[in-house]
Design a protein around this nucleic acid. Structure first.
Lengths: 115, 115
DNA sequence: CAGCATCCGTAATGATACTG
DNA sequence: CAGTATCATTACGGATGCTG
């Protein structure tokens, strides 16, 4: 139970899943399995290739997702969660749950302001 | 079990705990209880007043922490987790745990590169 | 199709000085 | 002590054009 702040590793986890599009990418891959680049892009309105590519590379770098290139023309690249990446699922679930509750809470606050 | 990406609330949770100093602030308050501004600052090497103030205000805004001002000279301001804020603890714990494991994993990879 | 390179605007963070 | 205000710097994200 050594939880000295200096050894705080929360940020390490945070660095992995933080990024404008990473949570959504992970949700898609977790829920719908392997996806092509174009599929992901299509399912994420507003994202640019640059950003999608960047976020995917960062996730790949950390072994969260796997990138498979099919050497053909036109190119085909698929992304999938790694087994290791799936270990993030409980955390993502918990955050999703918490976030939803938080949104509700906020709404209630606005309706009945205590102060 | 409606987990349509469009309803993804992971980011809501993420927005709360993301920030260069928020995780450390939360860890300190969770582990050591109520803290004065100066105590926190002292325990967080590298942080500036500006940043510490800003992050604290944001956490306060979301009801994660409570700010108590003692009207005296010199001023005394204390920060503490709210009950609601404590509901984040399991998530932070999980992330800390995961992060630590991730760091270890990375180190091993570097020693025995498979590829 | 997938992705890289470049340019640009905004937002986040930092350094520093000042104040009740 | 606990801020606020201002300015400088950097990181992040978006738009666009080019390539195998």
């Amino acid at each position: 139970m050594e939880k000295v702040p200096e050894q705080c590793r929360v940020e390490d986890a945070l660095n992995i899943i933080t990024g404008k599009w990473k949570p959504i990418i992970l949700l898609h891959l977790l829920q719908e399995g392997t996806q092509r680049f174009s599929e992901l892009k299509q399912k994420m309105p507003g994202v640019t290739q640059k950003m999608l590519t960047k976020q995917l590379r960062e996730l790949e770098e950390e072994d969260i997702i796997q990138r498979t290139i099919y050497p053909q023309v036109p190119p085909k690249v698929e992304y999938a969660m790694t087994d290791y990446g799936r270990s993030l699922e409980p955390i993502l679930e918990a955050m999703h749950e918490w976030g939803r509750n938080h949104t509700l809470r906020k709404r209630q606050k606005q309706q009945s302001p205590t102060s």
